[in-house]
Nucleic acid binder design. Structure first.
Lengths: 257, 257
DNA sequence: ACTTGTGAAGTCTTTCACAGCC
DNA sequence: GGCTGTGAAAGACTTCACAAGT
């Protein structure tokens, strides 16, 4: 796992499954909406619907946190909001630094969802000297030369990388050296980090490619009869006679030079 | 053999596991980089390292596509690039429409990774009449009133939603009505769509919250040298005052009225 | 000698279904 | 009547380890 994943082996620490952790924010959002409408309690069925999951899964998820519901009644909204927030660490303030203030970096700096929940954009950093001082979302951009100082002065432990791919690894190294231990990476690169540093990746083009895969399936199914396939751009050629065995779409065999 | 029949694996992706599909773009990116450096062949070990996964997983993934390697040698880079591209449906052109041209929408419109592989930003749509006609990333923004026409005229089947959350479901409905069958949703909302429509979600604040969870745990580990509590599992301590039995941190202030 | 491809084993996640409580 | 909490079963995914091929 070159992505610097944090593997916590056998020793059963009080482990909440990763899949559950990934859904807690979803529940929290749904609960917050209910809270704003002053709904006092909610059943697993209702909450699950609002969060877009099924209710058995939700109940199982909550069971890892403790017994926070009341049989026959449901869950107390405010109480759950607090418990999940605490579990996620959102009862404290997390200063975040965004590195790479291009289109995407600026969009993130302006994104309301950040500030709304424990996260505070503490610094914007860019390598372009021309940007230094320019305020983006009301926060002045600082130069990358000062990255170290900025990170430690602000006590930043979560960094967001929105640089071009070529710069991402280097920025990552510097962030880690300065004390950052969690990174959200928007650059389409595989980052390598030392043990103990978490990386999460958001990759727009990967998401689109996954959609395209399913989209293609749908189209193929529809016209399952004819239409053997539009001849795409020059397919590479494969060598010699041999044991190719693609599941269906085998192709004219040719080999690259 | 297994006891059960093969039921639909939720997202029917005939044969190829969803987890594998999600990694194909990663492999493709690594392969493209190799291709650009004119590397002719690559072993599962090398390619796995470049993609940030382990080699057994990669080989298993490829085995779902067919036997595209050569034992004792490795994989032919160009050939694999083609096969994966075809599998993902990237040998054809996918016109994409982005709805909601705020900061994020504009960032996406400018994002090079889109165009680079089969995806073409065919239309930008926004509800603000003041934006109509303004070019963003060289493409004029069109008004949401014409959404229907724009989608069908351009043959768009993939839509990207970057509107504020309040507008997302409505936009989604209109996209679906106009013929879109795959949606990439950046709005922090659970979209409901009819069967046959795929939705993928990218949620920035969720990613941050997951990082915060792990970050918090790291901090706690450091400090609490002694194990966090007497008993991590749930012992039948349910007596005492009331029936709450959270793992450790019991309530502070935020209880309901 | 070297690397792929894959059954089998292991682990993680989801779902079922019902006991227990309101 | 209601609903939660949870063992147990089912299923999906990963990893192991080695036979088979070049």
């Amino acid at each position: 796992m070159a992505t610097g994943r944090n593997h916590r082996p056998a020793t059963r620490s009080r482990g909440i499954p990763e899949a559950t952790v990934a859904r807690l924010p979803l529940y929290l959002r749904a609960l917050t909406a209910l809270s704003e409408r002053s709904v006092p309690t909610v059943s697993s069925e209702e909450l699950a619907a609002a969060a877009g999951v099924n209710s058995a899964k939700l109940r199982k998820d909550f069971s890892y946190l403790g017994s926070y519901g009341t049989r026959g009644v449901g869950y107390d909204v405010e109480y759950l909001v607090y418990q999940i927030s605490r579990e996620l660490g959102l009862t404290q303030d997390w200063p975040v630094a965004i590195v790479g203030i291009g289109n995407l970096g600026a969009a993130l700096a302006n994104y309301g969802g950040f500030a709304s929940r424990g996260f505070r954009v503490a610094a914007l950093i860019d390598a372009d000297p021309a940007m230094a001082g320019t305020p983006v979302a009301g926060i002045p951009v600082q130069h990358a030369d000062d990255l170290d100082r900025i990170i430690s002065e602000n006590g930043v432990s979560i960094g967001v990388i929105t640089t071009p791919p070529g710069a991402a690894q280097q920025v990552c190294d510097r962030l880690v050296a300065a004390g950052v231990t969690s990174i959200l990476n928007f650059a389409p690169t595989v980052l390598s980090v030392p043990d103990g540093v978490d990386v999460r990746k958001v990759d727009l083009s990967i998401e689109l490619q996954i959609l395209a895969f399913h989209e293609q399936r749908k189209a193929g199914e529809e016209a399952a009869s004819a239409d053997s396939g539009p001849d795409p751009a020059a397919p590479p050629v494969r060598a010699a006679t041999s044991s190719r065995k693609g599941p269906d779409g085998d192709m004219p065999a040719v080999m690259p030079a």
